[in-house]
Amino acid sequence: MRVVLELLVKRKTFLRDLSLLGLLLLLLIELAFLEGHEGYFFERIYGFWALFGIIGAFILSKSSKGLSHLFLSKKEDYYGGW
């Protein structure tokens, strides 16, 4: 198990490139299913979920980290004995 993991960690750049290729491939595959798109208007937009995925991740990350830094985050002993 550890040997396999070491092998994968050594090839992390390759894995990253493979993942990016996979994402591009997904967008290409979606083209084949455009005809069958049904449902709400946004579901019929090509690449909508890819865009939603990346924008949603930015919004969630930025807003949560932003609010955390603004006032939510406190020292670990903030509550003391409470």
Partner: peptide, 16 residues
């Protein structure tokens, strides 16, 4: 369609 949607959603969130 559903499989592609989910993979796109999670894949691009991973990229972010």
């Amino acid at each position: 369609k559903k499989v592609i949607e989910v993979l796109e959603l999670l894949g691009f969130a991973g990229l972010a």
